[in-house]
Design a binder for these strands. Structure first.
Lengths: 346, 346
DNA sequence: CAAATTTTGATTTACGTACCTCAGATTTTC
DNA sequence: GAAAATCTGAGGTACGTAAATCAAAATTTG
């Protein structure tokens, strides 16, 4: 049988109240007595029954998710996943609140973090913007002892407890490697190949990192591949469509396109309308309805994906663990870079 | 506030005891009264607090994992993951027992299932062998109301509740697609290419399915690729090494190797010793210490992987849900086909 | 040394559910 | 209409922990 607080009290020769004081760090225990109790705890290998403790406290973990009110499919999907978690929250003793902020706006994010700080939740998850003022706001949350998880986009060298998202440098490298290998046949051997890169914005850290990884691999392993100057489509379908259509018109020899941001609907439209040209090899990010269709139609060749559902569930697990001071299972919380070809679509 | 049994009793105008009888399906309630209670439950949207219920029952979920005592890295890793779950089990109100059976032995598996049936656990997970007698044994477990999850290898059209493993046909297709694309450059265009397939045994369902998927894609999309007769290495490193070495010696034009089973240490040794030949393109399954090293050394080009940790945790979650009659989150329990290149190694 | 303070013990209630007993009410059976 | 069977209510205890109260003991302070 698992040892209980009663067993500790018996072994340590103290009362239940004293055991409780030690266990919950309450004052009023001499250090000698505290020592005896801690010894008993150690010798019995006691671990507090969290379910019973939460029941007694009638505790619910109150978490806040701060999400950018972006309208691309990925962010919409992320929202949905969080709402799904909200729906399940009554079963899981969690109370999750969603706070929407305007996208790409450090000031708004900081303001949201400050508001959140005021009502002291048991944990906060947010899609970070890599800016000093955000880092400072995060530090204030840490000071207040509020566990923090960054979601999708990280805030490195900050006081966040955990990052629930993919390694974007590795994602870029993977894209580069696939691009290089897939191109090796039809183009490279003869005369080299030209590749276009479509990003959302070079101000966003994940996009910068993906480009960095991509360029590194191409530079190291596929020197015959030339990367055109990055097109910044601001994750906007219409703008992206124009830019890609233009690029294809001007550079008839584009052999590959790496779309490392969102707004892929525009990219797909541009590709569908580019008649008469040899279809370029396309690698994009995030499996959405449109990229999925394009993948099975052969318009896109590979999609790198991060599973928003996994990210949200992982963030919640981690916040819970941090709130309880428990360790996290690193392997379970690692967010994979999913690679989808038309052959392994889920 | 979440409604409790007390609220139901008040609304339905009955006593707590009666509510309890209805909730737990105990006898001694007239159908009229039962109706009133059920109505109250529905109108309040009551959901039983599982944590409190389990506490009151001082319940622990007793699960049994039946695992083949195979000595390849993947199975060893699977064992370790289950042992990890055993270590965590005291926190999770689970009691997990591991039963080892000889590999590839339907009789032994059936015997193990029968033994398990005798002590009526709350759930069973096992690595299935696709044989009629196993299917029959599974049916007996289902009759006894014991939830069942197949692990890694499925038992389709049987009474198992869930399969915690990858779609092996899709895995084979993915391998075929990668093989076709990766080969397209250096070989295909000119004169076609020859590909060798190394399997464990064609008697095992997952191996058959992987081959099926692989062959289909190659046949459909890469008609210039010729697949040599399958080599069956029985997942044995030594045997696999000999077979691959022989094949390479006899067919100097082997451009690719798909290793769809275990025993990859032998394959890697054979490749390392094949001096003077053009290195074939190699796609293998399962990320282990040796395939990992080979991947980063460039001996293997891609590894398809199933995450044993995820499979084990998923099996436990599903068994728990089934034991409680709760729904499972399909998206969370889908086991991905991980694709690793040297660029996205975790 | 008395008073004030700190430490400790004993006991109780609570969380939400399960499960038990016993008595009283209602219905069914003969 | 009495006996038997079935249904229902009231109340309690338990699970393991949290948290509170109050009194007694030990220690420190003046």
């Amino acid at each position: 049988m698992k040892p209980t607080v009663h067993d500790i009290a018996k072994i340590a020769g103290v009362s239940l109240a004293t055991v409780d004081r030690v266990l919950n760090g309450r004052p009023g225990v001499r250090s000698v007595t505290r020592g005896k109790v801690e010894e008993a705890i150690a010798s019995l290998g006691y671990v507090r029954d969290l379910a019973a403790a939460n029941l007694a406290k009638s505790r619910t973990y109150s978490f806040v998710f701060i999400l950018p009110a972006n309208d691309n499919s990925f962010m919409i999907g992320l929202h949905e996943e969080v709402r799904g978690a909200v729906a399940r929250s009554s079963f899981e003793r969690t109370g999750i609140r969603i706070v929407d902020v305007p996208p790409f706006d450090p000031g708004a994010l900081v303001a949201a973090l400050e508001t959140v700080l005021a009502d002291k939740p048991a944990g906060v998850a947010f899609v970070a913007i890599d800016a000093p003022e955000v880092r400072a706001a995060a530090e204030r949350l840490r000071q207040a002892g509020i566990p923090m998880v960054t979601l999708v986009s990280d805030l490195p060298d900050s006081s966040r407890d955990h990052y629930a998202g993919i390694d974007n440098i590795a994602a870029g490298r993977t894209a580069g490697s696939l691009m290089g290998r897939f191109l090796s046949g039809p183009f490279l051997a003869e005369r080299g190949a030209t590749v276009a890169v479509l990003a959302g914005s070079m101000l966003v850290r994940d996009h910068r990192e993906r480009l960095e990884g991509f360029s590194t691999v191409i530079g190291e392993a596929y020197p015959n591949v030339r990367i055109l100057p990055v097109l910044e489509g601001r994750d906007d379908p219409a703008l992206s469509e124009t830019m890609i259509a233009d690029a294809l018109r001007r550079n008839a020899d584009i052999a590959g396109i790496y779309s490392l941001g969102a707004g892929n609907r525009g990219l797909i439209r541009a590709l569908q309308n580019a008649h008469g040209l040899r279809r370029p090899l396309v690698i994009a990010h995030e499996l959405t309805a449109s990229t999925r269709a394009a993948l099975s139609d052969g318009i896109i060749d590979a999609v790198l994906n991060q599973d928003a559902g996994h990210e949200v569930r992982s963030a919640i697990r981690v916040l819970k663990a941090k709130a309880d001071g428990l360790p996290v299972l690193a392997a379970q919380e690692r967010i994979r870079i999913d690679i989808f070809l038309k052959d392994n679509l889920p």
